[in-house]
Nucleic acid binder design. Structure first.
Length: 479
RNA sequence: GUCCCCGUCGUUUAGUGGUCUAGGACACCGGGUUUUCAUCUCGGCAACAGGGGUUCGAACCCCCUCGGGGAUGCCA
């Protein structure tokens, strides 16, 4: 079994393509098969090396392990289509000499016109076969006009083209319905995707082509070329497309779609891979959160449903939060560190303390980046009270608690008992209880009316910081 | 327009002729835990697109309709 993932480097790795890559990877891991990474960069205008690099970076981040590719080489290289033009040329000569392809001198404008006419009359031949039988005199005359020819593949009409798709089942087209003779080499001499994909898959000995459903209607053309060139055809599996909420092909307006942004927002690759690979099927026991090893074990192409799936950003977040909460302290710190260090200077804190704090805050984080807002009051002695909090603390009952807090930290409380006794002592002295007790106390200490367990928070703060907070609140009336 | 693919709760899925008054998860709503919030936990809401067949029996098989998507590029 040999598999491939063939992105075109025209932008960041998109969720939809990531899914194709993930599924190819799952299968390659499961069956110990080779996974070829092939860069389809024949669109010279839109392709870039930066895109290629970022795609490879994102694939690696997702844990995808290709065994052959432009970076690591392999027996069937080169792995960039732009480096394979000589190979394609041979096959083009062959098709030309066998009369299976021909030069077409129609201009882009002329073919555009034909297309419109065909569509208006409900016909499916978008090219009318104008140049199919040109004499050599006609050809030289057209060339003298300065026309640069394209090369078209000759499609015989009314032939049945059927194949069995692993996901879709049997699919059939009629050759009269695929648009007529299609271009395989552009007028600038660069061959076209639909043509060379066949050559590459054959030469690279790809046994299973697993790709997005948007390629389903390209398949008959590719099958025709494959036959014309005498290749064995691979097994095909067309993955249903990933949709946005409105059931349109997932795109930017639905939410973030490039994988690099998921990384930057603080998603764990494991969560993203888990979510994406469960789109379209369910595990045997309908468990949703599964380690990759288990997914590899259970996954099969035939389990994937034939219908498209809507990408649920909320469920992904939930799953990500789940992964965060089940990550061990030291590993968690490693993951959160890049986010934290972007906003905070962490030099003065010990790893042990940081781990204790982030572990404590983990129920509040769905994304790794959420830690930044959660942790702010732990990393600074200064505190800024919002107007809402000020109002609470300056109210008659609130102020009593502020004064009591100040007193307690000046006299009774010590570094041994401050976090465990604080609340009870305030209660004793002021008679406040319930939320009238807790909200002001929490507000004084954390600057927020909600949050994790106060005693534990104060313990993590330490006595000094709590005392500072007590003073800051007390100074509210001084200023 | 034409061709191809698809159609179970809002979403994602289980379900392959009787065990389905259709199960799980997310979301949503409510209870409990937490003197807060989050987490956790318990419960609730909620679907076989419609119509014809086939069959003793259909979510499952067939046909039609409707709906959705993709393709229709000298993009991939």
């Amino acid at each position: 079994m040999r598999l491939r993932f063939a992105p075109s480097p025209t932008g960041f790795l998109h969720i939809g393509n990531a899914r194709t890559a993930i599924i190819n990877n799952l299968l390659s891991q499961k069956h110990n098969a080779s996974l070829v990474l092939r860069i389809e960069d024949t669109d010279m205008e839109r392709s870039s090396k930066e895109s290629e690099d970022s795609i490879m970076k994102d694939l690696s981040w997702l844990g995808i392990q290709w065994t052959e590719g432009p970076d690591c080489g392999g027996d069937y290289g080169p792995y960039r289509q732009s480096e394979r033009f000589d190979i394609y040329k041979e096959y083009t000569e062959k098709l030309l000499s066998e009369g299976k392809a021909y030069y077409c001198y129609c201009s882009a404008e002329e073919t555009e016109q034909m297309r419109k006419e065909a569509q208006a009359s409900g016909r499916n031949e978008t090219y009318n076969g104008n140049c199919r039988n040109l004499t050599s005199e006609q050809k030289t005359r057209l060339e003298q006009e300065g026309r640069k020819p394209t090369i078209r593949f000759h499609v015989n009409p009314d032939k049945d083209i059927s194949f069995n798709d692993t996901i879709k089942g049997s699919v059939s087209f009629n050759s009269s319905n695929i648009g007529g003779d299609f271009i395989i080499v552009r007028s600038d001499g660069i061959p076209v995707y639909n043509y060379i994909v066949v050559i590459d898959d054959a030469l690279m000995k790809i046994s299973h082509v697993i790709r997005g459903e948007d390629h389903l209607s390209n398949t008959p053309k590719q099958l025709l070329i494959s036959q014309a060139l005498g290749f064995d055809t691979p097994e095909y599996a067309h993955l249903p497309l990933v949709m946005g909420e409105d059931k349109k092909k997932l795109s930017k307006r639905h939410g973030i779609t490039s994988v690099n942004l998921y990384r930057e927002e603080g998603y764990l690759p494991e969560a993203l891979v888990n979510y994406i690979s469960m789109l379209g099927w369910a595990s045997d026991d309908e468990e949703e959160i599964l380690p990759i090893s288990e997914i590899i074990k259970q996954f099969e192409l035939t389990k994937i449903g034939a219908s498209s799936a809507v990408f649920d950003f909320k469920k992904l977040r939930w799953m990500n939060g789940n992964y965060i909460r089940s990550t061990e302290g030291a590993k968690l710190l490693k993951l959160m560190y890049p986010f934290l260090s972007k906003e905070y200077d962490l030099k003065s804190y010990s790893d042990g303390w940081l781990i204790a704090v982030i572990t404590f805050l983990t129920p509040y984080c769905e994304l790794l980046s959420d830690i930044n807002t959660q942790i702010s009051h732990f990393l600074s002695d200064d505190i800024v009270y919002t107007d809402e909090i000020k109002e609470l603390l300056l109210s008659e009952d609130g102020w009593k608690i502020v004064e009591t807090t100040k007193e307690l930290f000046d006299s009774k409380l010590t570094s041994d008992n401050f976090y465990s006794d604080y609340i009870n002592l305030v209660k004793e002295k002021t008679g406040a209880k319930g939320k009238n007790l807790f909200m002001p106390c929490r507000s004084i200490m954390t600057g927020s009316i909600h949050g994790p367990d106060l005693a534990e928070t104060m313990k993590l703060y330490d006595f000094g910081k709590c005392k500072i907070r007590a003073n800051t609140a007390y100074n509210l009336k001084q200023v």
